[in-house]
Amino acid sequence: MGEAVVHVLAALAAFLGLFVVFARNPFTCAFALVGLMVCLGGIYGLIGAHFVAALQVIVYAGAIMVLFVFAIMLMNLNEEESEYSWGHWRTYAALLLSAAVFLILGSGVNAWLSDTRKPSSGVWTFDHVREVGGNVVALSGQLFSKDYIQFEIISLLLLVASVAALILAKRKVD
């Protein structure tokens, strides 16, 4: 049952992605992206990455996209005249380049799937994660023991980014 739901969510995400790229109205793009992120959050939850699913919905669909919608409302974006147009050579160049990248990535995926010498699998099987006490417990155990330096560095990055955003959004730097 879970597998079928994952497939439906994947199809829905693929469909919403087209709206993000081709919709003329920025609001349509933003809300399609919110829907896509919620779909991805559902997929993460169904394949066992519960903490990442929660982060996806709270941080991505909740915080980042609200910031985008605020930015759209801050600037009046009613002028549609200078958007992309079918028939321009740049449109076809962009489509061609994206298709080429898709072919490269697809051949990479194909090589991975058909490779028989896969790396040895780790210890965190579904049953082992359940024994430890769930995905969040296992993940936080790793995060605050093995990866704590990266955790501290990323907090420093957030501090720098918030100061930079403040300076940039001010009207004049004295």
């Binding site: 994947a10 995400a13 990479g108």
Partner: peptide, 12 residues
Amino acid sequence: VLHLLSAYLFCL
């Protein structure tokens, strides 16, 4: 399916 979806979304 998920690997292909990932490649597709990257290209989009």
